[in-house]
Nucleic acid binder design. Sequence first.
DNA 1: TTCTCTACTGTGAACGCTCACAGACGCAGT
DNA 2: ACTGCGTCTGTGAGCGTTCACAGTAGAGAA
Lengths: 343, 343
Amino acid sequence: MTMSNTGGRRKPPTIHDVAREAGVSRGTVSRVLNGGHYVSPSAAEAVNSAIRKTGYVVNRHARSLITGRSDSIGFLLTEPQEKLFEDPNFNVLLRGCTQALASHDIPLLLMLAGTEDERRRLTRYITAGHVDGVLLVSSHSADPVAEELREAGVPLVQCGKPMGRGSKVSYVAADDRDGARDMVRHLLSLGRRRIGVVTGPLDSPGGVDRLAGYKEVLTEAGIEIDERLIVSGDYGRASGQAGAEQLLARVPDMDAVFVASDLMAQGALTALRRAGRRVPEDVSLGGFDDSAAATEATPALTTIRQPYDRISNEMVRVLLAQIGGEDPAAVILPTELVRREST
Amino acid sequence: MTMSNTGGRRKPPTIHDVAREAGVSRGTVSRVLNGGHYVSPSAAEAVNSAIRKTGYVVNRHARSLITGRSDSIGFLLTEPQEKLFEDPNFNVLLRGCTQALASHDIPLLLMLAGTEDERRRLTRYITAGHVDGVLLVSSHSADPVAEELREAGVPLVQCGKPMGRGSKVSYVAADDRDGARDMVRHLLSLGRRRIGVVTGPLDSPGGVDRLAGYKEVLTEAGIEIDERLIVSGDYGRASGQAGAEQLLARVPDMDAVFVASDLMAQGALTALRRAGRRVPEDVSLGGFDDSAAATEATPALTTIRQPYDRISNEMVRVLLAQIGGEDPAAVILPTELVRREST
DNA sequence: TTCTCTACTGTGAACGCTCACAGACGCAGT
DNA sequence: ACTGCGTCTGTGAGCGTTCACAGTAGAGAA
């Protein structure tokens, strides 16, 4: 009584089979499948049990062919992927997007556009309508791909604030400026006054905004901005170490550092330790991201938590809305100060 | 003279448009698209330039509808995803598979089956023929999903050796036994004789094989197996720490440990340090995986490199072969000893 | 010439679905 | 009775491809 059916895929049932089984027409089955309006309760019941009995699953290709939708979306990465894949936050984002989409029964296509060739290939693929929309993760905040897709009319949501001010592309981002403000305020509340900063890349809005928040709070507190206490990095561990070394050389009695990423903060930790500074006794150290690096470091890093789980949900929500015809939207989500051992 | 076309996706050209442009029939265009046999050079040239001119991209839905293939494959994760996504090796694998598939112009669908519901939904999706095959990553080495898909006749390649001996499912794995042998031989060559081992889970082939390699080499070297020197872990950091503590308690003069994952080795490092042992002076420590954890640890870990870049390529190769009608295959790839500071 | 073979090309039909339309039915208002 | 309306249902057409088949042209053999 087993139906092992080992090997050789059997032809799946079609909407026709279901219709015959339920004693109705294709049209009625289709109506039940898509919302179920204008169909009598008895017919709906018959169709549903026929679906269960036959194990019917809609053929998305046939559906897409006529609707023009593909009911799938692309998760596009346009940058050096080694770096990104190492970033725990990126992984949270990818996982979150996949799950958020899954709850809408929409598959996610992973697209990596490292080289120029791949970029071209994927742009073609996307503009040909093989996905309904794109979730874009790009470290370049003024990515040409974003503009190209937008011009082609492809619904698009970017992770992080894009650089171009005028460009009408949707995005979801954490509130970098406010996060930085919280951190610097926290350092001030500890009695620190000579607070250094290692910024992110200053050609990205994230880098700029975090620095702006730092400056604002100090100015509000009546502390003059000391340019010797400002160095810029690239979010990578090495640049954090170099940055902290530079700061210490310039201002040996610095009593706190705000480092614009946890990875850089790890590097800064190494530099501080080598220079004989104790953290947090001599120097308070604040990071940004609340990545795995923050808890793995010793001492564990006080940092600013970016709500990547919410970011992914919002990206999906905004994208689906845009696919549904709504206008592009910008969403900025609040950050949260997470206190640990480094301050 | 710009054709900005902002917003509103234009209807893409069809094979019909190309045919008209080239002055040939649909059939000829289709033949050019699929291999180009039985088509005259002049016609092929005309079609190709028409394709370039119109910017034609094949509609995969229409193609799939008739061929029955979907020309896409699924990357299925059946286990606690938080853990896996943290694993750098997993990320290499995902990236490698995506790229290997991209070179065949095949999109990868990311599928996460954490809950029972998702598992059912995805099984339906897969068996309905929405993907041509599945790359499966599962920590359970005897995953019921694997068996279910195999029975449904879905081409499938698993990452890592599956548990069931008889089951005819394709897999690609590193040579765990041989890697373990290399490591233990290395420890012996350093003059170590009281070598402990923290194994992986012993209900998985990887865990079993690494322990087997350890035992083999010791036996070959004429050293008796001491059960007090064997504890088992679960590949996680915490279990490595606990394992090393247990070993030290049982055999205080242990002079080396082979730990079956780098993450566990990090934990073991902490335990050894707390117990006042210097690494590598007092105790040589060998890991497994060559993950990021290995280089981040201080001292950097000597470990066994699993060739995840090659594994991903092989998984794709074997899967495509199987889709093409070939029989399931098992591929075992050689590992490599990477010497760093911990031995 | 005629026949055969090879190389090439065009033409329905079909894949499984949705959509627009037309029709049927019951019920209320005129 | 007729008309109108809202609810429900079936039918044909068509989405863009590939595939099988039929057909043409030219070359070479008989």
